[in-house]
Write a protein that binds this DNA or RNA. Sequence first.
DNA 1: ACCTACCGGGG
DNA 2: GTGTACGGTAGGT
Length: 843
Amino acid sequence: MNFELSDFTATLIYFYALIFVVVKLSLYPLDVSYKIMNDRAVIHVYGRTPDGAQVCVKDELFEPYFLVLPKKGSEAIEVSQELAGMHITQEDKEFFVTRVEVIRKRFIEKEVSALKVFVNLPKSVPVVQESIRKQGHTPFEFDILFTKRYILDKGFTPCMLLDVDAEPSTENSKVPVFTATSVAPSQTQHTLDSPRVLALDIETYNPLGKNIIAEQHPILMLAVYAPGFERVLCWKRFANPDKTIEFVDSESELLERFKQLIAEFKPDILAGYYSDGFDLPYIIKRAAKYKITLDLGLDHSEPRMMGRSQTQVEITGIVHLDVFKFIRKIIGRSMTTDVFTLDAVATELLGDKKHAVDVERLAHVWDNDSEKLAEYCLYNLHDARLTHKLVEKVFPVMLEFVKIIGQNLFDINRMTFSQLVEGLIMKHAVLCNEIILNKPSFTEERQRRMHRLHGAFVYEPTPSVYKNIVVFDYRSLFPSIIASHNISLGTLNCSCCEDKDVVPIDYDTANSEKKMWYCTRRKGFISMIIEDLITRRARVKELLKQNKGDKMLAARSEALKVLANSFYGYLSFSPARWYCFACGESTTAWSRFYIKKVIAAAGEQGFHVLYGDTDSIFLELGEKSHDDAIHFQECINKELPDLMELDLESFYPRGIFVGVRAGEGGAKKKYALLDEKDVMKIRGFETVRRNSARIARDVQREVLEIVLKKADISKAVAHVKKTVSDLQLNKIPIGKVVIQTQLQRNVESYASFGPHVAAAQRMKNKSIPVGPGTMLRYVITKGAGKIRDKVRLEDEALQTDYDGEYYVQNHVIPSVEKIFEAVGVDILSEVLPKKQHTLQGFF
DNA sequence: ACCTACCGGGG
DNA sequence: GTGTACGGTAGGT
């Protein structure tokens, strides 16, 4: 065995422990899992010690439990005695209550007596709670995963130092294992802020382009990257390889070598870009094909694919991060890109691009031109390098979420906004002794959805092009409303404060709601959490002013902002545990009040109000100057409550507002602005999807550019006319009208026969294999019938076959018609001569 | 109006 | 695993 220093240290601790029985050790917890051992659930905490050793601490003393509120009219004490003897046998398995405690809790901010029901195993919880529910009592906290429950109750934070008293254990593992006698967060507040991160990327054999079939196509290259640990594995040799390239003899050897590299590097974090959805599932499938045991887990277990349609790949003891998920879900909102390819994301966040290599040709190069493989290997390594850099970039933000919310890195990486908020509230619930509310049942959730919330205020823009625009917005409007008006489930309509701070709703028209107010004496549970976020963020921003460029402070500020901004959405989100219709309704009511206030003031001061939505207002300056705008902002801010502030977002020399199509309700934001640096800011136009014809996207972008940058409508019209005529004359390359769709199931199993199914059927008829995953590329050709009747495969159709008229009507015109409407041009009648329009029916 | 299926990222 | 993504859209019924 060859130990590194850190392993050596861990081994010393271990043998020391063997002699003295109990030792103290500290670790940064990275992964928490549990195993059933001798009919008990045993928690395993994996992590790294401050001197760099990987260890596992197990806790045999933590018991599964949930809470029960006894039904009305029954005494807690009596019910506890009834429940204590519960024992259920199902399919030879025993589910039973081990003991019951009567405890004091708070339920929606009021004191209650509750029962803490302990059971033999975590799996007993759903069974026993169901049975108790049938007796008319109400169970709570029965769906908090055992490992999450452990973290919550022990009050520690993943990635932050944990102090443990422990005895050595002989459990088989890649790392020393200890059995804890006590577990508590360290007083030091030390954080694992530089974990060992290994980034991973694979390249696969791709003769079918986008149609990727792991069962058929091998992994050709695999790159891992950490500074000073850069390697590309490749199983085809070529001359003069770079020193980072390591040849192996086969794909199976590549997989074996990959295992060795992981064992050698001992990462805390294994990271990929879309690795939940691609790299790791692919590696798992290929390893299975060769019957290779992929025992990457520190307990020798193999990576596990969780979830059905949405895979998450978990490795015991190693945190698998899919940085794509975090960036798209959490960072994406504040990015300018609307596509989340590695190239686009790296360009925006790192100022670095992917290598310009044609990956479409990889299979061909692999088969015919192996001397060119070198550039693919370096491309592969570079992708792993970019992934590593992205992790470095976003890790501070992830770590802040871990610290604020107190859940594992693995989970934080994959959470949505609502889950982050809920996680935060759950942590505070434990701290405040509040019962964690249940998720709604299916019917309950449906009922919630029926109850439509009266939304924010929108001042509809008159579609047109405008000059010299200034944009203001309220800083964190919703969070500051919730905090300053004490909006919470338990402060609603208290008995002590009626009429003191009544929500400004027009009670005659607003869903005939009853009058609402919130307690002015007692702080609400929800409003307290959000106020804490706001004040913490204000402090962080102060520190940030003194330490400009401090990445950790910037990350903390970002995390706190994201959380605060998600609260309102959470309260009105039907599947939320702390859903509160009145809270959502009150928040938007106050928001309408505040935005209308600015709109009215702007009008009084002689600004032309163009558009207002929720928390922002767009004004046309006209004769007024930038200074006038700043003065206006100052006037408004003088009158606002402490926590609220109106910001000046930016000035824009030119902008276009576009009306929305009928049925496009809710998508009110549809505009494009040109900033002072000549950069376009486009909002609400259809995003890039591969199943829309390329030509439609191109034309839309070009039209916006011409209108805003050249300010020449006739040029824009001419451009569309040219495109339309080119389509009608089949001059546009057929590649630009191809529609791409991926088949999800077998052709026979489709109930509705859409165009893509027709394409698949045609392939089948020609004995081309089609199945789930097949990428269909087809065009709509001239002829009669439904669209599905006019479908031809890309290579069945000639340049002259496609139905230019279809693409004009269904793709090109819809993508630009509203833009032209805004400038008073009916693009349809411009491009189609009238007689053709009206006389068509006669022929 | 409602229902069903697909998109994203990856090669 | 104290489990089953998500929000948006096109086309068909």
